[in-house]
Design a protein around this nucleic acid. Structure first.
Lengths: 238, 238
DNA sequence: TTGACCTGTATTGTGTACGATCTTACAATG
DNA sequence: CATTGTAAGATCGTACACAATACAGGTCAA
């Protein structure tokens, strides 16, 4: 049995599933703001400023900060306050390595147990990625890519691993955005993902795992190059 | 270059490293309380009660709860408050699988690049484990086991992976405790870890990875049996 | 000019009180 | 016995107050 359908949930009966509290809204808002690089790494997150920008009180802001701190997106310096976490190249390298392990395992198992619905979800995501590249909509490409992997992990029954990968990805969101937008990525990257999907669809676990490893390895190489050139000369005008 | 020594941190230079705030103390206290099963899974964590038990105000308690929530140790139900997270057998299964992947990779790389100091640290931890088993000090065994793995991940240069494993382990802390205390574990478990260490010391990456996989696989099997028997008849008296 | 010292301001760390809203339990009613 | 209404208790969110610390800037002496 796969983990795709949550247990005992009759749709359309419950009022709202979860009346989102103010805090959850604020958390999501601030997290996407950080992930989408509205706050550059190292920038300070002054509590009172955030109160104003989010429209909530200090308590809520502080609890949200604690949550993001535990997620690794924010670092708190005592008596100085929270700042957006910086990403060390070394950490990025390791994150890609872990992703390669987890994603290839997920691809392997997805090839063994994907349902037709899950395959359809992956196919949809792939075409959305292609459309996003065609339209130059990089943000859409990122979202669809996430959807593809979410479907793949679900197909492989890897709920926990997906949580881990999601969290790790949020820490390299900026690299992912740059990688996706790098020249030639529209053809090679998409091609690799189609290769993963084809292997899963044809029930070839080993091939799926290998293709997945290849994809992450390539992304890591691009990211490495980006980090190197950033370290070499970050301010081209200054 | 390994990742063992943190970048640009000359020891003994910084004034005080970090004056621990009340919040950090409370966080650590509550986390260990949960991990050591003083609060059973599903039990409610009423804010005001915790205020009394921890000796801090509600603000601190709430922020600590948010942190633990992000760590996955606590689940918050809106308007009902936080409860200690329950561990689903399925999640436990996946956690052991991820551990097998990450630990075997760490063992592999540790065999390639461990320094004499790191080997010594692992050897120390091993003898501490043996001593703990001999003295029937299960808690000590757990701590020393953690130390062994910490040294192994450091030797393999896997800082991020270690963070991931630490966090996953905290969610199965109860299972780990039961596994370590299970009959015969003193000989088989310790023997497997010595096998891992021997392979690392002899610079045999593949053997180290295989031994590591074997160790986790066996632990997972014991945990599975524990969970099954717990699901079958948890209250033998009542 | 350099360095030490002092001071004021900004920000965080922590505690406390209050109203609103939701959940739950219990009592009243048919 | 089932249903409804009410009340207690908890959380959610806000506002305010005060202490502790960090940082910037100025003053003053060597």
């Amino acid at each position: 049995m796969t983990l795709a359908n949550p247990p005992s949930r009759r749709p359309g009966l419950r009022i709202a599933e979860a009346p989102p509290t103010l805090r959850e809204l604020a958390l999501e808002r601030l997290r996407t703001a950080i992930v989408e690089h509205h706050f550059p790494p190292g920038s300070r997150l002054t509590e009172r400023d955030l109160c104003g920008q989010l429209g909530v009180s200090r308590s809520v802001v502080r609890e949200v900060i604690r949550h993001l701190e535990a997620e690794g997106l924010v670092t708190s310096i005592p008596h100085h306050g929270p700042i957006v976490a910086r990403l060390e190249p070394e950490a990025a390298e390791q994150i890609y390595e872990i992703r390669a392990l987890l994603e290839s395992t997920a691809a392997h198992d997805a090839a063994q147990s994907a349902t037709p619905e899950q395959l359809a979800a992956m196919r949809d995501a792939l075409s959305a990625i292609a459309a996003g590249y065609a339209a130059g909509d990089h943000h859409g490409v990122i979202l669809s890519t996430t959807r593809f992997y979410e479907a793949m992990f679900a197909a492989g029954g890897k709920r926990v691993a997906w949580e881990v990968v999601k969290r790790l990805n949020s820490r390299i969101s900026w690299l992912r955005a740059m990688t996706i937008a790098s020249p030639g990525r529209a053809t090679t990257g998409l091609g690799q993902m189609q290769k993963i999907f084809a292997a899963i669809e044809q029930r070839k676990p080993e091939a799926a795992a290998a293709a997945s490893r290849g994809h992450v390895t390539m992304a890591a190489a691009i990211a490495r190059a980006l980090l190197r050139e950033q370290a070499a000369g970050p301010p081209p005008s200054g």
